[in-house]
Amino acid sequence: MSGEKPGEMPGELLTPVPDEDGAPFWEYAARGELRVQACAACGELRFPPRPCCPHCQSFDSEWRRMSGRGRIWSYVIPHPPLLPAYAAHAPGYNVAVIELVDAPHIRLVGNVVTAPDAPIDSVDPARLRIGAPVRVAFGDLPRWVLERS
């Protein structure tokens, strides 16, 4: 396995490699819940997860459930793909930055797809627009589907 990075297998798409702070995010996602870390002292939401609150320096945290609704804040259609495993999906796949409706300062990265387990190239790139409403869809990973507006 020379040259491979954690979460990368030859010919496979990247998978998350949770650290101690982010592990609860992935555990909730496996149960179909989108949760974001919050400071238990001052209530500020934070992402990515980390041990200390950047606002009040408390080490106490909790995980708050989000509605799963968001908007496309930004996106890219990679030409060519950056990793060989993505070549079969190029140039039709997207990588989107999603701003959560519940917490506009929280942005998550993922793919916009037609269904939870659909391929990452299942949405026609012409349908993507900045500000388009999306909702989370849980399959192997949290992904995003376009909502009708």
Rank of each mutant, 00 (worst) to 15 (best):
I106C: 11
G110M: 02
R69Y: 04
V112F: 04
Q57Y: 15
R127T: 08
P84A: 11
V112A: 00
V109Y: 01
G131S: 06
P91M: 01
A137M: 00
P116M: 07
G92V: 04
P119I: 08
E99Y: 05
L141Y: 02
D124I: 09
L83D: 09
S122W: 12
I130V: 11
R135W: 05
L45V: 11
L100K: 13
V95T: 03
G70I: 05
P81H: 10
V145W: 03
E62P: 05
F59W: 15
Y93V: 05
D60Q: 14
P104N: 14
H89P: 04
H55Q: 15
P84W: 11
P81W: 10
P51Q: 15
F47E: 10
P104I: 13
L45I: 09
C52R: 15
L82P: 02
A137L: 02
I72A: 00
P51K: 13
W144N: 08
R143I: 06
Q57R: 15
H55A: 15
P80E: 10
S61A: 15
H89I: 01
V134N: 00
A137I: 03
V145N: 07
C52K: 14
I120N: 01
T114K: 11
R143K: 02
G43N: 13
I72H: 05
V76D: 02
H89N: 01
V95D: 06
P49H: 08
R71F: 01
R148P: 07
P125H: 04
D117T: 14
P119N: 03
L108K: 02
C53M: 11
H89F: 12
E99K: 08
R71D: 07
P133V: 01
D140S: 14
H79E: 01
W144I: 02
A118N: 11
I130M: 09
R148I: 11
G110S: 10
V95G: 07
A126T: 05
L83N: 10
V109G: 04
D117H: 09
L100P: 06
